[in-house]
Nucleic acid binder design. Sequence first.
DNA 1: TAGATTGTTAATCGATTAACAATC
DNA 2: TAGATTGTTAATCGATTAACAATC
Lengths: 236, 236
Amino acid sequence: MANAKNTSKNRNGEEIPRSVGEENDLRARVSPVVVRRLPRYHRYLGELLREGIYRISSAELSKMMEVNASQIRQDLNCFGGFGQQGYGYNVKFLYGKIGEVLGTEDGFRAVIVGAGNLGRALAASHMFERRGIERIAMFDVKSDLIGKTVSDLPVLCIDELEAFCEREKPEIAVLTVPKEAAYDVSVRLAKAGVRGIWNFANMELKLDDYPDVYILNVHLGDSLMVLSYGIRSRMK
Amino acid sequence: MANAKNTSKNRNGEEIPRSVGEENDLRARVSPVVVRRLPRYHRYLGELLREGIYRISSAELSKMMEVNASQIRQDLNCFGGFGQQGYGYNVKFLYGKIGEVLGTEDGFRAVIVGAGNLGRALAASHMFERRGIERIAMFDVKSDLIGKTVSDLPVLCIDELEAFCEREKPEIAVLTVPKEAAYDVSVRLAKAGVRGIWNFANMELKLDDYPDVYILNVHLGDSLMVLSYGIRSRMK
DNA sequence: TAGATTGTTAATCGATTAACAATC
DNA sequence: TAGATTGTTAATCGATTAACAATC
C-alpha cells in the first residue's frame, strides 16, 4: 500500500537513488512547522478511528481540520507515501505511521520531577499512556510527599534521582519544579542520561554542555499573553 | 522619544497619510508569528529591568535571545518606533509598550472553571497578576470543593456561573474542566459575555456562533509529542 | 561632529497553495 | 475502463535576513 519507491527526483527531474534509509529517516530534516502539525493530524485520525471511519481523503480531512488539502498531502508526504491514488488514506495505517514518526512506538518512559499541583495534574492525566509513554515515578523534596503514591506513581526523594535513573533509564523528564531549582535539576537529569526535558518552569532552559538532550520549554504565561492580545484585538 | 511620524510610505515610496489611529492600531493586522514572539521579548525585557539594565540595542538583545537582530527591529517596529537611532531601546519604555500591546494595562479579570489539579496549579501561579490579569473566582461542580478558598480564590458552584459573570463581567475564562464538559461550559461562558477562553481540555474548542469570543486551545499532549519526536530525531 | 544604531527597503529564504500528471 | 485522489512540481505568498540611508 505505501508507495515506497527507492528513487526520488532531483531538481532536473532526473531520478536519483535514495540514500540508504532515507525514507523514514528523521535526519532528512523535516521542517519544524511540519513536526508541530503532526500531533494534530494524529489526534484527528484517532478521533476518526474511534468513530469507525477507516478511509479518508485529504479533501475530507481538510474540511474537518480547516487546513488546506495541499498542505495535508505535502505534510504527510514528508515521511513517505502514506496514501493511495484514487483511494485516499487508510486511517488506521496513517494513524500508526504518524504515531511511529512521533515516537509512540518507542516505549519511552518518563519521570515527573516536582510533585506540586502542576506535576500532579500532569501525572493524573492520561496524556502519557495515550501516547505510548510510561510514567514511572515522581520526585520531590518535600518529606511529607515522599513515600506517598500519586496517581499510581511513587513519589521519591530527589536525592534518589541519579540512582533511579541509572537503574531505570527514563528517556523523558517532566520538569515542574520551582524556577529556582530548574537549572540544577536539569543538569542532574542530563548527567543521569535523560534524553529529553519537558520544562514547565517559567524560564528558558538551555543546556549548552548537553547538546544531545532535547529541551522543550513550555511557556504557559506566553500563551496567556497571546490570549490577552487576541481579546484586545477583537475588542475594538 | 518614540518616533511617531504621521505618514508612512507606500510601495512606490510616496508618503501617504496614516489613517486615523493606525499607529498602535491592532486592526492594522500584525502577523500572528510576531504576536507569538512578543511575550518572549516582554519576558527578556522584564529580566533586564530586574537586573537594572535600562538600555539595550537590538544587537545585544539578539545575542541574549538568540534571535536575529533584524527580526527584533522589524518585530518591534510593527507597533511604532519604540527605539532611537544611535541609542537603542529604553528597556523600561519598551517593556511598557509591549505590555500595553499585549493587554497588561487593560485590567482583564479571569475566572478559572474547573478546580482540579490543573485549575489549582494555574490558580496558584503568579502568572496572572504578573501580567496584569486579576483572578477573581474558581468554579466547580464538586460539592466538597464549593465554598472552599483555593489560593485566595473562592470556589463557587458552576450553577452560579451566569449570575456571577453578569455581575462581575470577567473578560477571561480559563477552562480546566473534563473534555466532556468543555463545550457546554464554553457556550455558557460565551453567552455570559466572556471575551476569551483559554482552553486546556484536550479537544479543539470552536464556537461558531460566537465569533467575537477569542479561543486559545492549549494542547499539552501535542507538545509532549513534539518532545518525543525531538528525542527520536536526536537519537540516531 | 563622529559613531552608533534604528527604521526601512530590498533580497533571500522557506512555507503555503494551486495545478496537474501519475496511478490506483 | 473511468473516476478519484494522491504525489509532486510550479507559482504564490509571507517571513526572515541583509544592507544601508536616516537620524539621534
